[in-house]
Design a protein around this nucleic acid. Structure first.
Length: 492
RNA sequence: GGCCCCUUCGUCUAGCGGUCUAGGACGCUGGCCUCUCACGCCGGUAACACGGGUUCGAGUCCCGUAGGGGUCACCA
């Protein structure tokens, strides 16, 4: 078996969105699984819409996800002459012909057919033009496009899709499609095939929206005398209204960058995305990189489209709950050093980073993240919900304030008293803190939860969090005492 | 509209003729644990689109209907 070569050919007309990322991931996995190569090819033929920023964004997105490619990025625009040459070859060998029908004429015919409830296919007006007729029109300066000459005999083109099975299309269902515009620019269908032939692509793994194009592309491969790649079409991902997700209509929620900004762990997003339309027959859903490469197979791809169940305006589930869940899973199970490295840039951006976290306070930094991570969903939570652990200026959550502090007015006096007891300790250890807090509660005659959660409110600003006895130790005696003593200000 | 594809819990899915009174995951939810929350553990909720066949037997095969999606450009 020859070397497996697959490709990811995005058109740079916007950021990398999750649909494109998923396509890239499947191709990448397939290449890795078979020891093959992944080619990154930027399809920038549409100069109007292609931008440098978009190219950078796509590359940046792939790198962040950890999807690596072996060749490229190649640029489709650099191969324009090959595309033209291929068209000329088809023309010279009688597999294509010049068509002088104007757009207006064609539109009129199309409309007429639509009005008559018929379906329109190019009628072949120029297919039988003699060389003399062609020259005459050219001499008059009539513009022309080049059309592919689809066999006009009974028969069909078919292929064995690795996901959808046998797909066939009758010749009579395919019109003589345009392969070169009147301005001389070859069209996508041709460019794509020419590039895939040149890049020696053996497996075309792409979205199901390419399924209907495939028969025409196969015709091109054959006319160009090139071997056919294997095709595998993957189902699309739809939005809640079952519409294809797109950058234009869905905005940032479908952009890969959005997930980085929201504090996603790159691999968690990959793991989530791969599950949209692919599964193993055992019940595994969490895969390490190695496990996924090992487990991945085209057979596991479903045929039905899946829905990206994102939620907007939900503070906890700002996107598909399963994506959040998978992210939370990695957040609490990855080696803490890796989490530390992922949190660092966020802290730097938020002004919470302390150089000592890489030095003498590294153990404290990691220990704190480790204690906090169990109830967090994203990396950003360390900077928001966990802010009080890393800074002295933090806001107290409204619920915490009402429910755990103001509800018990006595805390205004109790908490500073508790602070005094803590202050008298040589060291604020977990066990000592617990003993003193429970003793104190008993003395004043309330459940231990009342002073403890009151302390939680003024020390962490939250209603929930790790065991307060752990927290005391982490925040440190000095800051604990200071914050407890400030309690009265919340009652003002 | 023509052609093509798809249809199992709210969502992602397992299922490749009998082991399916349909399994898992997420979500939601009851309980345990407990200083709170989370984790964990134990439960619960919820699906084979519909109608015909084929077969001793159909979620699984065939046909039809309905619904959804894709594609039909001198866009990529």
């Amino acid at each position: 078996m020859p070397e497996v070569r697959v490709r990811f050919p995005p058109s740079p007309t916007g950021y990398l969105h999750i649909g494109g990322a998923r396509t890239a991931i499947y191709n990448w996995l397939f290449a890795k699984k078979h020891g093959g190569k992944l080619v990154l090819r930027i399809e920038d033929t549409d100069a109007e819409r292609s931008t440098k920023e978009s190219i950078a964004g796509i590359i940046d997105g792939l790198e962040w996800l950890g999807v690596t490619w072996d060749e490229g990025p190649y640029f489709q625009s650099e191969h324009a002459t090959e595309h033209v040459a291929a068209a000329q070859k088809l023309l010279a060998e009688g597999n294509a012909y010049k068509c002088f029908c104007s757009k207006e004429e064609l539109d009129a015919k199309r409309e007429a057919a639509a009005a008559a409830k018929g379906d329109y296919k190019y009628d072949g007006t120029c297919r039988g033009l003699s060389p003399e007729e062609v020259s005459a029109r050219e001499a008059r300066g009539v513009p022309s496009v080049i059309r592919f000459k689809v066999p006009r005999e009974a028969g069909k083109v078919g292929f064995d899709d690795q996901v959808y099975g046998l797909v066939e299309r009758g010749y009579d269902d395919i019109e003589d499609f345009v392969i070169v515009r009147s301005n001389g620019m070859p069209l996508y269908l041709l460019c794509n095939v020419v590039d895939d032939i040149r890049d020696r692509i053996t497996h075309v793994i792409r979205g199901q929206d390419g399924l209907s194009n495939t028969p025409r592309q196969i015709l091109l491969y054959k006319a160009l005398g090139a071997p056919l790649p294997t095709f595998a079409h993957m189902p699309l991902t739809l939005d809640l209204n079952k519409a294809k997700i797109s950058k234009r209509s869905h905005g940032e929620i479908v952009s890969v960058q959005f997930y980085r900004e929201q504090g996603f762990i790159p691999w968690a997003l990959v793991n989530f995305l791969v599950l949209l339309g692919w599964s193993t027959s055992d019940d595994r859903e969490i895969f390490s990189r190695e496990e996924l490469i090992e487990a991945f197979s085209l057979d596991g791809i479903t045929r039905s489209n899946s829905i990206f169940n994102y939620r907007k305006d939900d503070p906890k589930f700002f996107t598909d709950p399963k994506a959040i869940n998978i992210n939370a899973h990695y957040l609490r199970s990855m080696p803490i050093e890796e989490i530390g490295a992922l949190v660092k840039p966020i802290f730097e951006k938020e002004g919470l980073w302390n150089e000592d976290y890489d030095g003498e306070k590294r153990a404290w930094y990691l220990r704190t993240l480790d204690l906090l991570r169990e109830r967090f969903h994203t990396l950003r939570d360390f900077a928001s919900l966990g802010r009080a652990f890393f800074a002295d200026d933090f806001a107290v959550d409204e619920t915490a304030l009402q429910k755990n502090l103001l509800k018990h007015p006595e805390l205004k006096e109790w908490l500073p008293r508790l602070a005094d007891r803590f202050a008298s300790l040589p060291e604020l250890s977990h066990d000592e803190a617990e003993r003193i807090a429970r003793e104190f509660a008993e003395e004043v005659g309330v459940k231990p939860g009342i002073p403890i959660n009151g302390a939680r409110a003024v020390i962490t600003g939250q209603v929930k969090g790790p065991s307060m006895f752990e927290v005391f130790g982490l925040i440190g005696k000095e800051r604990v005492v200071a914050r407890l003593k400030e309690t009265p200000k919340y009652f003002a």
